[in-house]
Design a protein around this nucleic acid. Structure first.
Lengths: 135, 135
DNA sequence: CGGCATCCGCTAGGATACTG
DNA sequence: CAGTATCCTAGCGGATGCCG
């Protein structure tokens, strides 16, 4: 096969939903991150300050190494996260929010705040809907 | 088979990502809608005012009837959208935002606004990342 | 017109094993 | 410690067809 070497797969994984329809509507870019399972939580954790790979892994219960790496790489690609490598033994890699990332995290936090405030209202609506639909 | 009757499948489809990890972090509910392909665009369209099923379909180029229905049902379930049925022939169904939905749409619009403002910055970061990673 | 039912492909993401 | 590679599956979402 023509595959040159290793990281081809990873590079493909980095580009998830290139949904052209979103572009049409003016949506795009890092908004896609919101649809991912771990991005928002990683952002939240990093908002508290720089964090090493292992710390992040522990702070996101249930995340796999694969997804942690993928999530961080995508955030890094979007310019939200900075990656610092300390080439010691064992190695130490620290992640932190960039200015752009902090700005983004702030916006996202607002939305989370909103959903928390409306939580009861939404759950009530869901319960009503389900009650009427069932049976 | 034991299948009683029709809409069982749809009811299952209505409940997508019950990601428990999101709950852990305080995230939940309608935030999940942001990860869906059409929800934000439907919300945007409905922000302009009430809209019939067919109009929505036309305003969201490329959407399938299945996804339009599913998207609207989930937004309705969350209490964001109200559904009015006019039992005429042919029937007429109109969708519109509730107060909750308008509030939600406003929040989302803010985020979209942010991403639009930062678009160039993000694309530059992506280009830099890709240039360094490739080759 | 406004849907539902079905089949089906793709990919996000989990589990596991291995490296520098 | 901080990843990468591989395998595998659940389910999101598209295409199509039918119905009141």
């Amino acid at each position: 096969m023509s595959a040159t070497h290793t990281d081809v797969r990873l590079r493909e994984d980095l580009l998830p939903c290139g949904s052209p329809a979103h572009e049409d509507c003016g949506l795009h870019l890092s908004l896609d991150r919101l649809g991912e399972r771990w991005s928002v939580m990683a952002l939240a954790q990093l908002s508290a300050g720089p964090c090493r790979y292992r710390e992040l892994e522990r702070s996101l219960p249930g995340i796999s190494q694969r997804m942690l790496t993928l999530t961080l790489r995508r955030l890094e690609r979007d310019g939200h996260v900075l990656r610092h490598v300390e080439a010691s033994i064992p190695p130490s890699v620290t992640y932190e929010l960039s200015d752009l990332g902090r700005s983004f995290a702030t916006q996202v936090a607002r939305l989370v705040e909103w959903s928390r405030a409306r939580k009861a209202e939404i759950e009530a609506a869901q319960a009503r809907f389900d009650a009427h639909a069932d049976r």
